[in-house]
């Protein structure tokens, strides 16, 4: 596999606040990657750096072997759809699509038009008068119809309802199958997209705390529930990511259980279930930002 994006020890600080902290990662050609993390974790900053919209404080970014900053050869192969894009005052969707057609070499106009219909984006209304969900849909249309070899979508569904989001996931997958490319999707709706992702990066407080193949991650942790005493006995020696107690009942998320361990615990009368990706990631995020709960 060819690496298309390589980030090495990348840090971005704004007046003393570190948004991205010593991040290193590699993204290979043709795959759907998830950049997961809570609001304010550093997802957008990292994507902006990769897309050359921001300058790194220290560290290196290479996209197709070169720095993306002011590099038209690199940027011609990249579509970066930010969570809130601004369009000219008097633009309607038609103007946006015409501009995108000029910007992206692989632009598929027929596909773009079909997406406008599918997401029911009003063609006669000014883009700045669209609802939040419709505006997000404009970003999705541009991001997908660009068919750019590197497509970066930063929380592209803000304001979309559940039906529109489902459309988006289905269209993304179908179009990826027809036109494989490198897609990086940032999201905090982990459960909704987990099945689409081949690889996940979890970012927390500017640092990458998890970098793994999604399928390897599944089944790597288990939720174990039973009486406090028996759970404590059973999980001694395993890494505990999360633990909750109610009365004499205890539930833990434990990492590194093998199939035979699970069978042994079950015959000891404990309930053992594989942790979902979302449970696994939430417990890892909690562990790293111990006791700090911020409401975004």
């Amino acid at each position: 596999m060819t690496k298309v994006i390589e980030v090495n020890n990348l840090t971005k600080s704004y007046r003393g606040a570190t948004a991205v902290d010593s991040v290193s990662l590699a993204i290979e050609e043709n795959g759907i990657y998830g950049l997961l993390g809570r609001n304010g974790a550093g997802k957008t900053t990292l994507m902006k750096l990769v897309a050359g919209h921001e300058l790194a404080s220290t560290g290196e970014i290479s996209v197709y072997g070169a720095s993306p900053v002011e590099n038209s050869a690199v940027l011609a192969n990249m579509a970066f759809i930010r969570e809130s894009l601004r369009y000219s005052e008097n633009y309607k969707i038609g103007h946006v699509l015409k501009a995108a057609k000029i910007a992206f070499a692989n632009w598929d106009d027929a596909f773009a038009q079909s997406l406008v219909d599918k997401f029911q984006i009003p063609r006669k209304r000014l883009v700045r008068k669209l609802s939040r969900g419709q505006l997000s849909a404009v970003g999705v249309v541009v991001g997908l119809a660009a068919r750019a070899p590197i497509t970066i979508l930063d929380e592209p569904y803000i304001g979309m309802d559940a039906v529109a989001r489902k459309h988006f996931y289905d269209i993304l997958l179908a179009d990826y199958i027809k036109h494989p490319r490198t897609i990086v999707l940032s999201t905090h709706l982990i459960d909704e997209v987990a099945d689409l992702l081949e690889h996940v990066f979890v970012i927390d407080q500017g640092r990458i705390i998890l970098d793994a193949n999604t399928e390897d991650l599944r089944g790597s942790a288990a939720v174990i529930e039973g009486s406090t005493e028996s759970v404590d006995d059973a999980v001694a020696g395993f890494v505990i990511l999360e633990s909750q107690t109610i009365g004499t009942q205890k539930r833990v998320v434990a990492q590194g259980l093998k199939a035979e361990d699970a069978a042994r615990l079950q015959s000891a009368g404990l309930a053992v279930k594989p942790a979902t990706l979302q449970q696994l990631i939430i417990s890892q995020t909690n562990m790293d930002s111990s006791e700090k709960v911020e409401v975004a």
Binding site: G31, I32, Y169, D170, L173, A174, Y176, I177, D195, L196, L197, E198, T214, E215
Partner: peptide
């Protein structure tokens, strides 16, 4: 692979596996 991925809404690499 592609039919399985589309039907189950999963990444084609997973269906391939």
């Amino acid at each position: 692979i592609n039919e399985l991925a589309t039907f189950h809404r999963i990444n084609p690499a997973t269906a391939l596996k």
